[in-house]
């Protein structure tokens, strides 16, 4: 009568990514100290750390879910919400700040209708707050994914953003 689990138990989304997750779990679950690489690979797979994936990791690693969640919320590199296809990082460092980066950030927020740290409804863009990206010579500067855009003015923003589908 109690074979298997109850009706309300784990039902994984029907998604090929979870097959790949199972392979990763097989690779990492026996290794000591492998939780962070495991979470990194999971995030690479899904773009963030979905709750069902964290539950799978907790089962395979035989640790409480709270432990996984504690690690995932400690490090800034992990995300618990889905993110956009394109991540926009407008530099807020000192050099950029004195050259008007707040106006650049305001314009991006206005164009996309979201705040820093948020993702657009169509998952096209995420704005990520960032302190300094180390390209002060190009101030004010921003990065979209791996591309750097420097010497920005607010007027340039809409054209740049449109390049990222």
């Amino acid at each position: 009568m109690f074979e298997g689990a109850c009706a309300c138990a784990q039902q994984l989304p029907n998604n090929g990514d979870y097959d790949r997750l199972a392979e990763l779990l097989n690779k990492y679950k026996q290794q000591k100290g492998a939780l962070i690489p495991m979470l990194q690979e999971t995030q690479k797979l899904f773009g963030y750390l979905p709750e069902p994936a964290m539950e799978q990791i907790a089962r395979a690693f035989a640790v409480p879910l709270g432990h996984i969640y504690g690690v995932a919320t400690f490090y800034a590199q992990f995300y618990l919400e889905p993110r956009g296809r394109h991540v926009i990082r407008v530099c807020q460092g000192t050099a950029c700040h004195v050259r008007g980066s707040s106006k650049i950030l305001d314009r991006v927020k206005q164009e996309l209708g979201i705040n820093a740290g948020e993702t657009t409804k169509d998952f096209r863009y995420t704005i990520e707050p960032v302190a300094c990206i180390g390209a002060c010579g190009l101030a004010p500067v921003m990065m979209i994914n791996e591309n750097t855009h420097g010497r920005l003015t607010p007027e340039m923003m809409s054209k740049i953003l449109l390049k990222y589908e």
Partner: peptide
């Protein structure tokens, strides 16, 4: 909760000023 009861419900969440001892999410 973790060591004596192995229930693992309460854990540290977040970091720094935002640190919170709480269940998942």
């Amino acid at each position: 909760c973790n060591d004596i009861q192995s229930a693992g419900i309460l854990n540290y969440n977040n970091r720094g000023f935002d640190t919170l001892v709480a269940p998942v999410l």
